[in-house]
Design a binder for these strands. Structure first.
Lengths: 334, 334
DNA sequence: TTGCGCAATGGCAACGTTAACATTTGGGTG
DNA sequence: CACCCAAATGTTAACGTTGCCATTGCGCAA
């Protein structure tokens, strides 16, 4: 056991088992045209030598890698962990692996991402579009490199998938109106956030669809501190009985801000957030919020690539609705 | 442009450029023994055909994949996102890619993880040891598969890296003692958590090292709710002027629990957490906590594999200390 | 002019696997 | 007993790349 073993190949196994390389290959793939007795002999040889099929040889021969590439601009981001969980779960299901790459560069383009991916052992790629790529409109995926974009936008040549942020706002606003509120105030996010702006549109248009002119919104910056300030402002507005915040941190901040001005939640004002990100961090409130199934989004993306074995690409646009989770921060005032 | 292009190989480029395949290969690797003029002609051909070197062919030839495999039991977990960021950053630096796989199975063994990895295009692997594998003590890494475990435990054959949980507690306890506190109370976590138990040991032993007998600890379950309950209990203990909680959620819950019993933080009681996970979620307190650099842990792991190009493995054990971040929840009572 | 050395390029083989085809063997049928 | 068929196994070639060695062409010193 002194020398370093070079990697064991079918040839070595074949020699030891006294069969041809092809029979070894057939045994690996459990072909029915190998006698059980022979198979057993080959398996024994594989065990003895510690044989593992070589990925490169196999891929070269097959022209497939059974791997999906994932490109992300910044890995740290709300929901990314769940999305990754989804990628991994779906890949696992299809016997695929996930290859992860960080994307950078100014300007950030789908073209360069795609080009980089094509030198990696992947059959398709998923791009998490935190940023808007400069060439979004004109990009065409490489032939043979099925591409799925995680974004709310539609694309003529790539399948896209994401959470439905517009519908999320529709659900929240209609829910609050059903509880008897005459209008819904809104704490927004910075204008550069694509998904945040979709939430804003959803809020605005749903109110209008119910014949209600949207009140002045309060602009936040995702932080609880900005929610706190917004809560203090809205506490002085007598028409404000229901507040919808663009994320949970601002919603929680808002609650504390309202309380600092003597308003109680939900007795005086109802509050709803988005993202279900408070988890077990806050002890004294079960916030009413919208939960997105990011894992499902991730699974869909990988399914689209790994599931379509040889099937025609077929561009599809998919938006998954969130689920409104009732907590203790909304009161029915009818 | 009607037919689907098969993948473009060196052969195609060579033909178009009127040179041999070898010259194309040399051009790809920017060998100095190709005339600049020839290089340019080859490059033009590559551009025209959209040539990308084939990963499988290259790996087969070279016997290297330039890829590090990462195995995780559950992807969702404190710090995993930052660790991933570290993996990706380090891989990027070395021109490597990351291949992610989810691990399951009962019992969970390093052996099966390793075996699964060896059929993937990776040169080494990193295992995030959220769970204790059944064969931790007896595992030997596959030859040629450099293995790094992310855990606090040492291993005779694999390099290991993680945050230093013991030192974290030492820092917190000594910091609080320096502020004049006579003892430090502790809110622990469930006993099954390896890192949590290390924090507990660190708290206990540091107090003893200062000649202080550790007071009765309060057992929590990582949630703010359990911290809240602990805070209420400790509020009635007159000897309790400083509390160290095993994570930030419990620390925040504890603060609210103390307040519910009329104690103020930090005027009456000082509180310190761990993990720096509150971020912008809580509006009204800047918690004193310990911040770990999980990204650095991730980078170290991948550096160890990707950086050691041909170098002898060399088993190493690395623990990174956290940094105590001063907030507004500790008071100097000297 | 001849010969030498160097720069530039080409030819060949091999990495490990497996699809396609070829061959062998044994058993049944006319 | 010749024949054919099916089951089991073997042989060959090719996937794309690149290390090694061979070859070509050219300038320069002898």
């Amino acid at each position: 056991m002194a020398a370093v073993k070079k990697s064991v190949s079918v040839k070595d196994v074949a020699r030891l088992a006294g069969v041809s390389e092809q029979t070894v290959s057939r045994t690996v793939h459990d072909s029915p045209s190998v006698r059980p007795e022979t198979k057993e002999r080959v398996r024994a040889a594989m065990r003895e030598l510690g044989y593992r099929p070589n990925f490169a040889g196999r891929s070269l021969r097959r022209g497939k890698f059974k791997t999906v590439g994932v490109a992300m601009f910044n890995i740290t981001g709300t929901g990314n962990l769940d999305r990754m969980e989804g990628f991994a779960a779906a890949a696992d299901k299809h016997g695929y692996a996930i290859t992860l790459t960080k994307v950078d560069g100014h300007p950030y383009t789908l073209e360069s991402t795609s080009s980089r991916m094509s030198a990696l052992p992947v059959d398709g790629m998923v791009v998490i579009m935190n940023r808007m790529p400069a060439d979004f409109g004109t990009f065409e995926p490489l032939p043979g490199m099925q591409t799925v974009l995680v974004t709310m936008l539609e694309h003529p040549l790539c399948s896209t998938v994401d959470n439905d942020q517009f519908d999320c706002s529709r659900q929240v606003v209609e829910y609050l109106l059903e509880q008897g509120h005459k209008t819904v105030h809104f704490i927004s996010c910075p204008e550069r956030s694509l998904s945040g702006m979709r939430r804003e549109e959803g809020w605005r248009e749903t109110l209008r669809a119910h014949g209600i002119e949207p009140p002045q919104l309060v602009r936040g910056d995702w932080t609880a501190q900005s929610g706190y300030a917004a809560g203090q402002v809205l506490a002085d507005d007598p028409t404000c009985t229901a507040i919808y915040a663009s994320n949970d941190a601002m919603a929680y901040g808002c609650i504390r801000g309202l309380e600092s001005r003597g308003k109680r939640v939900p007795q005086d004002v109802s509050v709803v957030g988005v993202d279900d990100s408070l988890g077990d961090i806050v002890p004294d409130c079960r916030l009413t919020t919208v939960r997105f199934d990011n894992k499902r989004v991730g699974m869909w993306a990988v399914d689209k690539i790994a599931g379509a074995e040889g099937v025609a690409p077929g561009v599809e646009h998919m938006l998954f609705p969130g689920v409104l989770v009732e907590g203790d921060t909304v009161r029915d005032i009818r």
